[in-house]
């Protein structure tokens, strides 16, 4: 078996597992009782989505598509800081 068929087979098998775990994260986003639960679930969802984008760019054979994964992984971090700063400043009266 050559390299191309091996990579395509393994990555095609892995796609439904990724999608299932994204749906489990999304259940926590919808259901989470408080604000930090939802932010934490969106955070993990974004990081794993970035990894999924990197893997998918190998599968569809266009390596320049990897930049959107890098962008998503670095910008989803900002949501944490906004919400944390709001929650912390409201209690301290700032």
């Amino acid at each position: 078996m050559d390299v191309e068929a091996l990579v395509s087979l393994v990555l095609t098998v892995l796609i439904p597992l990724y999608v299932t775990s994204f749906l489990l994260y999304a259940v926590r986003v919808v259901k989470g009782p408080t604000i930090p639960d939802r932010v934490l679930a969106i955070d993990s969802l974004g990081y794993d989505l970035a990894a999924f984008m990197v893997v998918l760019s190998i599968l569809v054979r266009s390596p320049l598509m990897v930049v959107s994964g890098l962008t998503l992984a670095l910008w989803i971090y900002a949501l944490d800081i906004y919400i944390a700063k709001y929650l912390e400043a409201r209690e301290m009266g700032g």
Binding site: A26, I35, R38, I42, L45, S68, L72, L79, I83, Y86
Partner: peptide
């Protein structure tokens, strides 16, 4: 604040 978080989730799905 919860609405802002849900709007971020919608943006991630659109990405």
């Amino acid at each position: 604040l919860s609405a802002a978080v849900f709007s971020a989730a919608q943006s991630t799905a659109y990405a």
